[in-house]
């Protein structure tokens, strides 16, 4: 009830115009699609895949958010898969408890603090730059919080475990003999993964990817703290509309648009990778 009612109110208000207080419920307060149309107004130049086209500014922010979220999901998958594999195959059950605690302890600290920690680490005169200069990897400080770099680093860190745990649980259910059978029949390391382990872990991979993608795209804290002046996340746009412009009606419309478009992206990706909904549940 506490979840559904506000959402219904949100849907309702998204179809009403943003009016001064004394005009609410007045003659101009009628249902309209104007709030949704605003999403497609104000075109600006947008360079994407080497083409320069005019795209409405908010659509442009939305597309960048989705693209960077996919990018973050891909990075997390690339790091998380070997990590989960290592956890299943190498770590003995007695050490597993310790390993799990080490992994989950950072989760006990609030997301704000963790993002601030990264803010400190990545700052221009911060410890990361100092360390890299000390060991001679770089000669002068690097501005890490630039463009979307900070956001990507922050999101990868924050949502890594949402990929590792589903992957780990699906890998654990794989019969070890299957891996050995593949090798016995001549499969190389790489082909064993590609033909046997990855297909088996598909449900884990899919649910991890969906979770990480939705969380990254919907993240507000990380982009706010680790974003630079020239990075924009769609959630920040909604926040500006609602809390700074106090235009709750357009904010509501954008939230709904964001939710449905992100869902659409997930469905489209699942279709593209031939994943069925039932693959996730079993």
């Amino acid at each position: 009830m506490l979840i559904i009612l506000p959402n219904i109110a949100l849907i309702e208000s998204s179809f009403r115009p943003y009016l001064p207080l004394n005009e609410i419920d007045g003659p101009r307060d009628s249902y309209t699609l104007a709030n949704y149309q605003r999403f497609l107004s104000t075109p600006v130049g947008f360079d994407i895949f080497g083409m320069s086209i005019d795209v409405p500014i908010h659509l442009r922010i939305f597309i960048t958010t989705v693209l960077y979220s996919i990018f973050v999901t891909a990075i997390i998958l690339i790091i998380g898969y070997p990590a989960a594999y290592y956890m299943t195959k190498t770590i003995s059950p007695s050490n597993m408890a310790i390993f799990f605690i080490v992994l989950t302890v950072p989760m006990w600290v609030s997301e704000i603090l963790r993002s601030f920690a990264w803010f400190t680490i990545l700052s221009f005169k911060g410890p990361l730059n100092a360390l890299l200069i000390e060991i001679g990897v770089i000669n002068s400080e690097v501005r890490w919080i630039r463009g979307y770099y900070g956001i990507i680093i922050g999101l990868v860190y924050t949502y890594m475990l949402f990929m590792v745990f589903p992957l780990y649980s699906s890998m654990q259910s794989l019969d070890k003999n299957q891996i050995e059978a593949a090798q016995d029949l001549g499969a190389s390391w790489w082909r064993t993964h590609w033909r046997v382990i990855v297909p088996h872990c598909k449900p884990g991979i899919v649910s991890g990817c969906v979770m990480v993608f939705m969380l990254s795209a919907g993240s507000l804290l990380v982009p706010s703290l680790l974003g630079s002046p020239n990075s924009l996340w769609f959630t920040q746009t909604i926040q500006q509309l609602m809390l700074e412009a106090l235009d709750w009606n357009t904010g509501a419309a954008y939230s709904l648009l964001f939710l449905s478009l992100c869902t659409f992206v997930v469905v489209a990706m699942m279709w593209a990778f031939k994943v069925k909904l039932s693959d996730i549940t079993n």
Partner: peptide, 20 residues
């Protein structure tokens, strides 16, 4: 020589067929 380079074939106790 690793298992994938030997001229042997193993039939496992649980067969280990690929279910997918």
């Amino acid at each position: 020589k690793r298992a994938n380079q030997r001229p042997t074939s193993l039939i496992f106790q649980n067969l280990a067929l690929f279910p997918l």
